[in-house]
Design a protein around this nucleic acid. Structure first.
Length: 666
RNA sequence: GCCAGCGUAGCUCAAUUGGCAGAGCAGUUGAUUUGUAAUCAACAGGUUGUGGGUUCAAGUCCCUCCGCUGGCUCCA
C-alpha cells in the first residue's frame, strides 16, 4: 500500500503500480495535460516514473510554471537537438548533453565539423521533431545489454562512460524518442510537444570529460523556454549584457584600451579610467590606514632565487613570464605575486610578538603569463594590480584578523553598491595529505572562518577540497546587476611561506623563545583591472557621482555666456569637483545629448537668466531638468552626494549568465 | 595552449558570381549664437590585420602569422 501526500496536504492511497502521470490524470484532465514532470520527495522525476509499491511519499506535480520543469524541458530539448544533428550528420558520436544555467548543450564528435551555417537546417529539423510530438520513453537495461546496444549504435563515448564512469551500476537508463536512443538518466518531458521556443546559440570546443589530454569534441549550445515571449526576453537580456560589456563601454567612454603592439592582456589606463582607479585606490588606502595597515613598496622584479625559496618557481613556471637572464647568468622574474617581497620586509629584522599583527599593504602590480585563449578585456589579463596586503600574526590572532579582513571586504563592496555576493569557503579535503601545516591549526582556522561569516551575516558555502595546498581561503563571488558572477576579493591563510622549508619566519614570543607566525593574504577588490571591469558592467558605465571621471559639465546656452560658464566651472573645480565646460557653438540640445551619452552625472546649464541671478539650471542625468538654483546650493548638493558615496542607480535584470554549472550528468 | 568563428576609415557597418573600396557618426574648416537627447555645408580620412599563393583581375578563393570573440583546459 503506497501513501502519496500532495502539496495541498491531501493524501491518496494506491495498491497497484502507479506513476505521477497516472495520479495527475486521476486528479483531472487539465493537470494531466499541463503536467511536465514531478517532484518526488525532493527529487525531480518524469511523469512515467514508477512510484514505490509501499511506504509513504511526498509528490508534487510540476507544470511549466515551476522552474524545475524548465530544466527538464531544456534537457529534453538537448536530446531533440542531438537527434537533429544525427539526422543531418551521419556517424555522429554522442558525448554528454546536460542543462546549464540559461540553456543547455550537447557535445558531439563528428567526421565533418558542425558550422554555424548548419544552425538554420538544424533548427528546422528540431522543429519537425517537436511537431511530431513523439513521447520520451525510458528504458532500463542491465549493464551488459546496455553496453551491447551502445556498441551496436557505434557510440564509443557512451560505451566508455558505462565502463568507466558508471562502474558499479547494474542497470542503465536510456531514453528513446523515435529512432533516437540515448544513455540518459533523465528525467524528460512526456512528449516532444512540451518543448516551447528554442534557439541554437553557439558552437565551441570542449574536451571529453573536461580533460585536455582527451579528444576535443564540438559543443553546441542552445536555450529553450516554454513560450516565445520568454525566449525573446532572454535574448533581449543577453543583448543588454553585450551593450554593457566593459570592453565596449571602455572604448566608448575612453576608459582604457589594449593594444597588440603593447601586448595582449596588458591594460592601458586612459585618463578617465585612471581617475576611477585612482579614486578606488584612495578609498582603499583610507580604509587601510584606519584599520592598522602599514604601506610598503616593492619592486616589480625579483631574483629567481626568491621564487625558488617561496616555491612558486618552478611550480608555476608555465604561467610566468620567462626569466630575465643577465650576461653573468643572474636571473630575475617579473613578480607573479607580492608575498615573497612582503615576507622579506618582515624578515628585515627580528620581530617581537609585540609587533604582531603586522599588516603590510601595497597596490602591487604582478605579471602572469595567462594562456592566450584565456585573456578577456580587463577581467583576465597578464599584468594587474592587486590591492594586496599580508598579515603576519600569531595563530591565536588568526580569528580576529579573519574577521577584520572579511568585514573590510564586506564594507568595501557595500560602499560600491555591490550588494549581491556570496563567499566560497575553500576547505581541506580531510582524507588528502597534499596540504602543508598542522591539521589542528587548519581545523581551528576553518572553524573561525565559518563563525566570522555567520556573525557578519555573510552567505557562505563550504567547498571541501577547494582550499589551496597552503591554507584555507574565503573567496568573495560578486553577482553583478545582470546576474553574472565574478570572483573578486579573497582572504587566504598561508602555512607554507612562513614554514621552515620556505622562509622560516619567526617572532620572539612573551616566553622569549622563537615562534612561527601565521600569514594571511587578502585583497578586498582582488585586482583593480578586474574590479573596474566588473564595475563598468555593473553600472553600465554610469558611475555613481563619487567615482564618475567627469562629475559636472557646464553647458552654455550660447557662446555669449561662456565667461559666466567658465566662472561657474572654476567654482566647481575649486570645490573639488571634476568639472568641464561645453562652450562650442552648438545648440543646447546637442550639448545635452553629448553629455548624456558620455554619462556625465550632472549638467549645469547657464544662459541669460542664470547669469543675472547667479544661478545654474541643474540637469540630472537620471531625472532630467531640475530647475535653477544658486551655484553654491548646487555645489553643496553634489558635495554631499560625493561625501556619502551615494549609489543612485544600477540596472536590474538577470540574463541567467551566472556560473555555468552542469547539473544533469550524462 | 585547443576547437569554431571573425578582422574593411577613430567608431558602427556596406560593397552582386572574383570585376573602379562606400555610407553614417566622430574629426578639421566655414557659416549659424542657439533654453534641456543631434543646425547646415565643405573638406579630409584606406597598402581592406600581416606575409605569401591562385587568377587577366582578390576586400571576396587557398596557406602562414598576428589579433579579437565564444567556449574548453588552466588560474599561486
Amino acid at each position: 500500500m503506497l501513501k502519496v501526500q500532495l502539496p495541498d496536504g491531501s493524501t491518496r492511497q494506491y495498491g497497484e503500480a502507479i506513476t505521477p502521470g497516472d495520479i495527475a490524470a486521476e486528479i483531472g484532465p487539465g493537470l494531466a495535460k499541463a503536467a511536465i514532470a514531478a517532484e518526488l520527495d525532493g527529487a525531480i522525476v518524469g511523469l512515467d516514473h514508477r512510484l514505490p509499491d509501499a511506504g509513504e511519499v511526498q509528490l508534487r506535480l510540476l507544470t511549466r510554471k515551476d522552474p524545475a520543469a524548465l530544466s527538464v524541458m531544456r534537457h529534453s530539448c538537448a536530446h531533440v537537438m542531438a537527434r537533429a544533428v544525427m539526422r543531418l550528420k551521419k556517424g555522429t558520436r554522442l558525448a554528454f548533453g546536460p542543462t546549464v544555467e540559461g540553456g543547455f548543450y550537447y557535445d558531439f564528435e563528428l567526421d565533418e565539423p558542425l558550422r554555424e551555417d548548419d544552425f538554420p537546417a538544424l533548427e528546422a529539423e528540431m522543429q519537425r521533431i517537436i511537431k511530431s510530438d513523439e513521447p520520451f520513453e525510458q528504458i532500463e537495461l542491465p549493464r551488459e545489454q546496455a553496453l551491447q546496444i551502445c556498441r551496436d549504435l557505434a557510440q564509443p563515448y557512451k560505451v566508455e562512460h558505462i565502463e568507466e564512469g558508471l562502474e558499479g551500476h547494474d542497470t542503465m537508463s536510456f531514453y528513446r524518442q523515435g529512432e533516437f536512443l540515448d544513455l540518459c538518466r533523465g528525467p524528460h518531458v512526456p512528449t516532444a510537444g512540451a518543448i516551447g521556443a528554442f534557439k541554437l546559440l553557439s558552437l565551441a570546443g570542449a574536451y571529453w570529460k573536461g580533460d585536455a589530454s582527451r579528444p576535443q569534441l564540438q559543443r553546441l549550445y542552445g536555450t529553450a523556454f516554454f513560450t516565445k515571449p520568454e525566449l525573446d526576453e532572454h535574448l533581449r537580456l543577453v543583448e543588454e549584457a553585450k551593450k554593457r560589456d566593459h570592453r565596449v563601454l571602455g572604448k566608448r567612454l575612453d576608459l582604457f584600451s589594449i593594444n597588440p603592439l603593447v601586448g595582449s592582456g596588458l591594460i592601458l589606463w586612459h585618463p578617465k579610467g585612471a581617475i576611477v582607479r585612482g579614486l578606488l585606490e584612495g578609498f582603499i588606502k583610507d580604509e587601510l590606514r584606519r584599520r592598522g595597515y602599514l604601506p610598503v613598496y616593492a619592486p616589480h622584479i625579483g631574483r629567481i632565487e626568491l621564487y625558488k625559496t617561496s616555491g612558486h618557481y618552478p611550480y608555476y613556471k608555465e604561467s610566468m613570464f620567462t626569466p630575465i637572464v643577465m650576461e653573468d647568468g643572474e636571473e630575475f622574474l617579473l613578480k607573479p605575486m607580492n608575498c615573497p617581497h612582503h615576507v622579506m620586509v618582515y624578515k628585515a629584522k627580528p620581530r617581537s610578538y609585540r609587533e604582531l599583527p603586522l599588516r603590510l599593504a601595497e597596490f602591487g602590480t604582478v605579471y602572469r603569463f595567462e594562456q592566450s585563449g584565456e585573456l578577456s578585456g580587463m577581467t583576465r589579463v597578464r599584468g594587474f594590480t592587486q590591492d594586496d596586503a599580508h598579515i603576519f600574526c600569531t595563530h591565536e590572532q588568526v580569528p580576529d584578523e579573519f574577521r577584520a579582513c572579511l568585514e573590510m571586504t564586506q564594507f568595501v563592496l557595500d560602499c560600491l553598491g555591490l550588494k549581491s555576493y556570496r563567499v566560497r569557503l575553500g576547505f581541506r579535503e580531510p582524507a588528502s595529505d597534499k596540504y602543508v601545516g598542522d591539521a589542528a591549526n587548519w581545523e581551528a582556522a576553518q572553524q573561525s572562518l565559518i563563525e566570522v561569516c555567520q556573525s557578519l551575516g555573510i552567505d557562505a558555502k563550504i567547498e571541501l577540497g577547494e582550499a589551496a595546498f597552503y591554507g584555507p581561503k574565503a573567496d568573495f563571488v560578486v553577482k553583478d546587476c545582470i546576474g553574472r558572477e565574478w570572483q573578486l576579493g579573497t582572504v587566504q591563510l598561508d602555512y607554507n611561506l612562513p614554514s621552515e622549508e620556505r622562509f622560516n619566519l619567526e617572532y620572539i614570543g612573551a616566553d622569549n623563545r622563537p615562534h612561527r607566525p601565521a600569514m594571511i593574504h587578502r585583497a578586498p577588490l582582488g585586482s583593480l583591472e578586474r574590479f573596474v571591469g566588473v564595475l563598468i558592467e555593473h553600472f553600465a558605465g554610469a558611475f555613481p557621482l563619487w567615482l564618475a571621471p567627469e562629475q559636472v559639465r557646464v553647458l552654455a546656452v550660447s557662446q555669449k555666456f561662456e565667461e559666466y560658464g567658465r566662472q561657474v566651472e572654476q567654482q566647481l573645480v575649486a570645490a573639488g569637483l571634476r568639472a568641464s565646460g561645453d562652450y562650442r557653438p552648438e545648440k543646447i540640445g546637442a550639448k545635452v545629448r553629448d553629455a548624456q551619452l558620455e554619462l556625465v552625472p550632472y549638467m549645469f546649464v547657464v544662459g541669460n537668466r542664470e547669469q543675472e541671478q547667479g544661478e545654474v539650471s541643474v540637469r540630472d542625468r537620471i531625472d532630467g531638468d531640475q530647475g535653477a538654483v544658486k551655484v553654491q546650493a548646487a555645489i553643496d548638493k553634489l558635495l554631499a552626494e560625493v561625501r556619502n558615496r551615494t549609489v543612485r542607480q544600477t540596472f536590474g535584470g538577470d540574463a541567467g549568465l551566472g556560473e555555468r554549472s552542469a547539473r544533469n550528468e550524462y
